[in-house]
């Protein structure tokens, strides 16, 4: 898995609440058998008109956001379907962190397995960030996972929570399956106790 330590980037504001994974990547793109190459499908129905031309005022299509790696989204981001294609599409496009006031459970779990950092901040911190980004689209935000801190363009800092295990996995790029397989003997012992 891709490591995550620090990140300095511009921010893409998409403050809609309850952005579900059907919006992040519509179901018709799930017929693939690979993880790679889903960047074009990211937010496809918000990004492209019926004839396939990009919709100019959608944030991902705006030139000032090209290359930005942080998405500032509304509450309950990633709700709905469990499709891991959602973090695959986000990371393929270039997003490495999503900042919101809450993240849906399955999306959080999927994101953390793909080196995509979900950051949950308070409503007040979210509002302040959004103000910054809307006034100064070129401003950059710093994320330091080790200290769990965001540094805003004015130098102020916001602390964000993350559980110890996920943090260590991201910092070291640890693969969770390897961790589970270290317990193979315990799993075998557990299986021996199962009723008929």
């Amino acid at each position: 898995m891709a490591q995550f330590t620090t990140l300095t980037s511009r921010v893409i504001p998409l403050p809609r609440i309850n952005i579900d994974t059907d919006q992040i990547i519509p179901a018709r793109y799930l017929k693939v058998t690979d993880k790679a190459g889903l960047g074009d499908a990211l937010f496809a129905d918000w990004r492209y008109a019926a004839d396939g031309t990009p919709i100019a005022d959608f944030v991902l299509n705006q030139p000032q956001h090209r290359g930005a790696q942080i998405l500032l989204a509304g509450d309950n981001f990633g709700c709905g379907s469990s499709r891991e294609h959602a973090p695959w599409a986000l990371t393929a496009w270039g997003i490495r962190a999503v900042i919101t006031t809450d993240v849906a459970d399955i999306f959080r779990s999927n994101a953390l397995k793909n080196g995509l950092l979900p950051i949950v901040v308070s409503g007040a911190a979210h509002a302040k960030l959004l103000e910054f980004v809307e006034e100064l689209p070129q401003c950059e935000l710093q994320i330091d996972l080790a200290t769990q801190q965001l540094t805003l363009p004015d130098g102020s800092q916001v602390q964000f929570p993350i559980d110890e295990f996920s943090k260590t996995c991201l910092l070291q790029g640890v693969d969770q399956l390897g961790y589970i397989l270290n317990y193979s003997e315990r799993i075998t012992a557990y299986e021996a106790t199962l009723a008929g």
Binding site: S82, I106, S109, N110, Q176
Partner: peptide
């Protein structure tokens, strides 16, 4: 669960 977890 997600696909990584399916693999797990």
């Amino acid at each position: 669960i997600g696909t990584s977890e399916v693999e797990h």
